[in-house]
């Protein structure tokens, strides 16, 4: 069971960043593989009830991951993660962004910078992800867009999940 796996989510509105810390009951190499191999990413990355589909993946500095998160109704939301720095199996830095099906990044939308770090925690692996936006205005833009497009209504179904969060993966 995973009842005692650490899960911290810290939203810092002043620094316009989100920090997510999570423990996993597996070794660092395997957790790293799950974050960096397309066939494994496709099996977990999108939150339920969405699924993940990779269109392109080149995990190297200057490469990128182009993927869709697909609703049960078949609607796709395209994203792209551009890898800027990689240090196997300690961490990587990437630029997140909204894009279209052909991988063209939406220039009107802010991009956030993901710093993902992997460390040993006894028998487990701790993954720390910092999602950094350039400004509070950037965060506001993303929020406003979320309200306009279909993602918001999809996410509304996650409300129930929000209320159950931590039931299985949070320190009490």
């Amino acid at each position: 069971m995973t009842a005692d796996l650490r899960f911290d989510f810290i939203a810092d509105k002043e620094k316009h960043s989100i920090t997510v810390k999570r423990e996993f009951a597996a070794g660092r190499q395997l957790v790293w593989d799950c974050h960096t191999k397309r066939e494994l990413l496709d099996r977990w990355f999108a939150p339920k009830p969405l699924t993940t589909k990779t269109k392109h993946m080149e995990f190297k500095e200057g490469g990128y991951w182009h993927y869709a998160m697909i609703t049960p109704e078949g609607e796709s939301f395209w994203n792209r993660l551009d890898y800027q720095a990689i240090r196997p199996i300690d961490g990587y830095i990437a630029l997140d962004g909204f894009c279209d099906e052909s991988g063209v990044v939406n220039p009107d939308m802010p991009r956030s910078r993901w710093s993902v770090a992997f460390s040993d925690a006894q028998e487990r692996t701790l993954v720390t992800t910092v999602v950094q936006y350039n400004s509070a205005e950037d965060v506001q833009k993303v929020i406003d867009m979320g309200l306009k497009d279909g993602m918001a209504s999809t996410l509304e179904r996650l409300d129930e999940l929000l209320l159950t969060i931590g039931a299985t993966a949070e320190p009490v």
Binding site: V20, C34, P47, L158
Partner: peptide
Amino acid sequence: AERWFADQRAIWASRYQNLDSLLETL
């Protein structure tokens, strides 16, 4: 804004629960 942050939390919580299952399988 609160809703958005709460949604982000829900997204990470959900995807990591998926990852727990995958790791268990692997």
